[in-house]
């Protein structure tokens, strides 16, 4: 159903998505956050473990007598700028996640943060895998699929 002529509305396009570099940067956010948080939960008496990857600052935290504690995750460089999240722990469980630092260099970045960061925040709470499962984008043709990110994901999934 996809030839280029008689198609008034939804003729096809196609994006050729070749590299996953940008993706990995975006996804790089989460492992740092969960590493810090999970470590804090399970080793409450010990210093917070320092993630071994490319975060730029060590984790830090504070606690109160009520059993509520906050943990600041590593600052992670994303394609939109540095991102740092703060996690609040209550009785050993994550009760809130907020952003300490967000990219704000230009209006586009802010707009994207408004959408993307709440999603990422929720992911931190859900402690899900850092990988994306699938990709939405402008419709690709069968040819375009071959070079698409979705194709790479399908292959990786076996």
């Amino acid at each position: 159903m996809n030839a280029p002529s008689s198609r008034p509305l939804r003729r096809v396009l196609l994006s050729t998505l070749t590299t996953v570099g940008g993706v990995l940067l975006l996804l790089g956010l989460k492992p740092h956050v969960t590493t810090g948080a999970a470590g804090a939960v399970t080793q409450s008496a010990a210093p917070f473990p320092t993630p071994s990857a490319s975060g730029t600052s060590p984790t830090g935290g504070s606690s109160s007598a009520s059993g509520t504690r906050t943990v600041e995750g590593d600052t992670v460089q994303t394609r939109y700028g540095p991102v740092q999240l703060k996690i609040t722990l209550r009785a050993g469980k994550i009760s809130a996640v907020s952003a300490v630092q967000l990219p704000d260099q230009n209006p586009r970045d802010q707009e994207i943060d408004n959408f993307a960061v709440p999603q990422l925040t929720q992911e931190a709470l859900a402690a899900q895998s850092a990988n994306i499962d699938t990709v939405s984008g402008a419709t690709y043709t069968s040819q375009g699929y071959i070079q698409s990110l979705q194709s790479a994901l399908d292959k990786a999934g076996g």
Partner: peptide, 28 residues
């Protein structure tokens, strides 16, 4: 490129139209 999910948790990346291979956001 058009996605429907049912049940479970899924992370759906949205491709960056201006930078090949990039994502502009992730929908959980």
């Amino acid at each position: 490129g058009d996605v429907q999910v049912h049940g479970g948790r899924w992370r759906i990346g949205v491709t960056d139209p201006l930078r090949k291979g990039g994502l502009v956001t992730v929908v959980q």
